[in-house]
Write a protein that binds this DNA or RNA. Structure first.
Lengths: 301, 301
DNA sequence: TAAAAATACTCCATAGGTATTTTAT
DNA sequence: ATAAAATACCTATGGAGTATTTTTA
């Protein structure tokens, strides 16, 4: 019993006439009669009482009519629902992110995403970058937000926010009054360095690279500091200097001044990461929004 | 989205492989791939992630799989239900019958019918023959049980019980001691006659006809008596004699004796009546049982 | 390279069209 | 006599088959 015949049946039943139903179905009457006859044969049941001025459904036809309508609304609802899931308009998505992401990058992404895809359930989990990678592999999160680059063939990433590194100095520091500081002037200064993770140069890599380009290796007075807040705290305590993402300036803290780095200032990229082979539609939706909101940010600069 | 494609989809999803699914569906792999592709195109949604060692449903596919299964059970239940209604195994039927029918004819019919079609709701209404005809025309009852014949082109009837007419005499009557009575001997006797209805000779017609064949017209001391019990009561009261269906002998009443009529005894037919153009399946079931139970009765004689 | 899916084509079954007949009012 | 459904026959779309190529682990 296929749906075309069921459609034909409903049309004939509703029009109480093969001719009218055929017209409504944009076909001629004979094949319609044929299809109904085949449906009746298949069911082993007479569905219509044929009279000379039309047609009337039998009791069995009455039942089939009701059920057919029910089946059609179910089919319709199913197609809609499947399309919505397929287009990533509905579903769930778990996102892991490093705390710094919530300063600048995350809020606009979340706003845009919630507006465009209100029926996607979003689960947010703050975590360390290495955990993000691990959980991505395990399929426990669908996307991550962390500092690029990332050397992992199974993962793909794209920049969401590019920001300059700025120098964080203790208030009383000798360079604290300069307008801009050359990175080379920091050779020999005690540095507070962010955490480094295997296979993920990330922020640590950018800081080291920037110093090396300026001709020196930073002297680590403290390393593997996980939270940016902590780094800034240590700077405020006079333990040393640090290179931090510019958005950290939002974190105004007594005893710390931020200085732009002279010359071609080093930058760091916060990016979204996902499993390369993952094809889920909600992820697609999320990535679309994330990339789009990056371009918007870029234009705002 | 037609059901064949949905079936194919379910098979592929369950087997997690186009090849295995094709084998299970008794078809080759390429057209199966085609059908799935067309389904995906129609929905605008990717249903499978194709890998080199098989296939895995996407999130949208997962949803479609669930819904497809639901649709299939619904289709299945619908076909079953429609078949049952179409075969007259389920439904409702209202039957009108004259009181005499409940003596002999009705009980075995009802027993057989309830046994074979336990899911047909049966409504029974005792009524006069003219009402039976009227209600049949009005569609308020589906079948009737009354004394034949019936001259009505819109109705069809069939005999369910043929019984001889017997003579009911008051106990003290001069013929009460005879073994068998010739009908001719009743000429001039005061007769109690059953009711007559327009277009329905019925019992009245048979009595008159029997007497006429015996060479006389019955002398009506009382006519248009509706209930057989009343006729027998009047006989017991000595008001006259009557010809009644043999099953009335079940009604043993003081002051009445029943005598077989000699020669070729007149008979009367109780029959089932229905609208000629009515094609309902439950009616078919009922008529089948009613006719069958008549043949059984006939064999039992 | 081996296993599975995709592509390219060929064929035929069947849905649909046209012409006509049958049926019932 | 007329209107509607059934029948007969024809055409063509599209589903299914075979052979082959592409893809990925």
């Amino acid at each position: 019993m296929d749906l075309r015949r069921l459609r034909y049946f409903v049309a004939v039943a509703e029009e109480a006439s093969f001719n009218r139903a055929a017209r409504k179905l944009h076909m001629s009457q004979p094949p319609l009669s044929n299809q109904i006859k085949q449906l009746e044969k298949e069911l082993g049941v007479v569905l219509f009482e044929r009279t000379s001025r039309g047609v009337r459904v039998t009791e069995a036809g009455e039942l089939l009519l009701e059920e057919a309508r029910r089946i059609f609304v179910q089919m319709d609802q199913t197609t809609r629902a499947v399309r919505r899931v397929g287009n990533g308009e509905v579903g769930r998505l778990t996102l892991g992110f490093v705390p710094s992401a919530s300063d600048e990058a995350l809020p606009p992404i979340l706003n845009d995403f919630r507006e465009r895809y209100p029926e996607v359930e979003l689960f947010l989990r703050e975590m360390r970058p290495n955990l993000i990678v691990q959980r991505l592999h395990a399929g426990q999160i669908d996307a991550g937000l962390l500092y690029l680059p990332l050397e992992d063939p199974a993962l793909e990433s794209e920049c969401v926010l590019r920001e300059p590194l700025v120098l964080a100095l203790p208030e009383g520091h000798s360079l604290a009054d300069e307008e801009s500081v050359e990175l080379g002037a920091l050779a020999g200064e005690p540095f507070i360095l962010p955490a480094r993770y295997a296979m993920m140069p990330g922020l640590y890599g950018q800081v080291i690279e920037a110093c090396q380009k300026a001709g020196f290796s930073p002297e680590a007075v403290q390393k593997d500091v996980w939270l940016m807040q902590t780094i800034v705290g240590l700077v405020a305590g006079g333990m040393g200097v640090a290179l931090v993402p510019a958005s950290l300036r939002n974190l105004r803290r007594r005893g710390v001044v931020y200085k732009f780095v002279g010359g071609l200032s080093p930058t760091v990229e916060l990016g979204v990461v996902w499993r390369r082979e993952e094809r889920s539609a909600v992820l697609g939706s999320f990535l679309e929004v994330a990339k789009h909101s990056f371009q918007k940010e870029a234009r705002d600069d």
